[in-house]
């Protein structure tokens, strides 16, 4: 690991000031991706600004018809939250299968979505539940937040403070995990909210995306059979030692049908 300066941010404003002034500084949330990256010398930040001490970024609350999760809330706390379990059990279930227990004890929702790893679990839920990403500057709709491989709409001094998830009528997440890392080879999140169906797909492409043909079909008939004759093109999907793009394309359909069955 290259050395760097380290600072525990006292507030979001404090952290924003530092990263705004120094483009080489990086925020660290749970560090479950960043620290392994630093250990491999794949990044050389000038400074790490630790968000771990900011109490206002932690916690889960219900606000009207939405569950609002603070950016520094750990996966384990989302998985075990009575509010999340009763309002959006699919989201608690997704959080309970991220990485492994030690990773869930450190990793955070804000860190996960700000990093936008193509195989991360949370982005599929943010997109399928049509969540709103709240930052220190504005509110960003899910469809506008995830831009490309490891790229988001966040500006240079912008920090995710919370994510607001509208409570769906039905939702479920199914993933085909990499057996070692538990990252999604393909993960499909299906949700029906206020009569609208959205399907978020992670792991398959360079960035989370919506499977709009499936959304239309499930909008007409909420049943896995409605997806039977649909297929996703393999062009542009990820292909690596774990799975070819054709295999991933096939898995999207399988995971979507299983998710619909699970959502009931």
């Amino acid at each position: 690991m290259y050395d760097f300066k380290y600072q525990k941010a006292a507030s979001v404003a404090d952290a924003a000031k530092v990263i705004g002034a120094d483009g080489e500084a990086k925020l660290v949330a749970g560090g479950m991706t960043l620290i392994p990256t630093l250990k491999q010398r794949l990044a050389k930040p000038s400074a790490l600004i630790d968000l771990g001490g900011i109490a206002e970024l932690k916690g889960i609350r219900r606000e009207g018809n939405a569950i609002v999760i603070g950016a520094m809330t750990k996966h384990v706390d989302v998985a075990n939250s009575p509010e999340v379990k009763s309002a959006i059990p699919a989201l608690a279930e997704l959080a309970s299968h991220i990485g492994d227990p030690a990773v869930r004890n450190r990793g955070t929702i804000g860190g996960s979505i700000a990093n936008n790893d193509p195989a991360a679990d949370y982005p599929s839920a943010v997109v399928a539940l049509n969540a709103t990403v709240i930052t220190n500057k504005r509110k960003i709709a899910a469809d506008d937040f995830f831009k490309a491989l490891f790229e988001t709409a966040l500006g240079s001094d912008e920090i995710v403070t919370a994510v607001s998830f509208p409570i769906p009528e039905k939702a479920a997440y199914m993933k085909f995990p990499n057996p070692a890392s538990r990252y999604a080879i393909v993960g499909t999140f299906v949700a029906k909210t206020g009569g609208n169906v959205r399907v978020g797909v992670t792991g398959a492409g360079p960035c989370v995306f919506r499977w709009k043909e499936a959304e239309a079909a499930l909008g007409k008939s909420w049943n896995g059979d409605a997806l039977k004759n649909l297929s996703v093109k393999a062009d542009g999907l990820n292909s690596d030692i774990h799975a070819s793009s054709e295999y991933r394309a096939h898995l999207i359909g399988v995971m979507a049908r299983r998710a619909v069955a699970k959502a009931g």
Partner: peptide
């Protein structure tokens, strides 16, 4: 493993199991 996967370095920090190879001492 040194790549945050094997769990040989698990310790408890404030009562929760964590991988001590994936946490800075200053944290």
């Amino acid at each position: 493993c040194d790549t945050s996967q094997c769990g040989a370095c698990v310790v408890h920090v404030d009562g929760a199991s964590v991988k001590s190879c994936t946490l800075l001492a200053v944290q």
